[in-house]
Design a protein around this nucleic acid. Structure first.
Lengths: 111, 111
DNA sequence: AGCTTTGCTACCAAACATGTAGCAATTAAA
DNA sequence: TTTAATTGCTACATGTTTGGTAGCAAAGCT
């Protein structure tokens, strides 16, 4: 497991450009999904697994470690939870939902 | 290659929830990077490869097909180019850059 | 006709993700 | 206070995705 860290070479950028590091981090299976689901509120491992329908514990565990090391998630008494940074990024991802709804229409029309 | 399509089961969601489909599409290596780089303007395959520093032709080609089928990219006389939808999504991704800059600071402080 | 550029594809190796099983540690119940 | 359930994982085997290099066919240029 290589943590994409801004300033270091990452998958997709030798320069370690911070944006590319972020894209690498978020561009792993379930990373954005986990942030999304955690925004509903903190929860423990198994509960999070259920929120994510079909994630395997292996992947969930890996993502949680990465996101924790990247300051997006932390563990509290209530379980895994978004940090302030994590909540910020959720806010940035949030508009994607509305967008995706429209986008889905294209598929129905043009198919 | 399975195209993540809203309404159909995708990696990460049996329900085919449109947002999860989008996360699947964008959460593939280089997908967001390509959108980012294409926003600089349309360009051809090899030029795009260079904008993306270290992408392999195999991956670039796959992503281009997926993004095209998903209405985010199209081919014009000038080469590959963002569609209107693609440009919209760029706008949504855009704030991530500023955010990522701040985020990078955390790594320097807390390391 | 030959040389260059372009847009790929073939191929193989490495990294990553998935699914199932299950185990050690904690908590709850009898 | 033994017994059972829950929790947070890890192991392992398998499949999928990505990456890297090589190079080829088609088009354009000289």
């Amino acid at each position: 497991m290589t943590l994409p860290t801004p300033g270091k070479p990452v998958r997709g950028s030798k320069s370690g450009n911070h944006l590319m590091a972020l894209f690498d981090l978020l561009g792993r299976s379930w990373a954005m999904g986990i942030i999304w689901k955690l925004n509903e509120g903190p929860c423990n491992f198994r509960a999070l697994q259920e929120r994510c329908e079909s994630i395997s514990p292996t992947t969930l565990n890996k993502r949680l470690k990465e996101l924790t090391q990247s300051f997006l998630i932390e563990r509290t008494v209530e379980g895994y939870s978004l940090t302030e940074k994590g909540a910020e990024i959720f806010q940035l991802l949030y508009p994607l939902e509305t967008w995706a709804r429209d986008w889905a229409k294209e598929f129905n029309q043009k198919k």
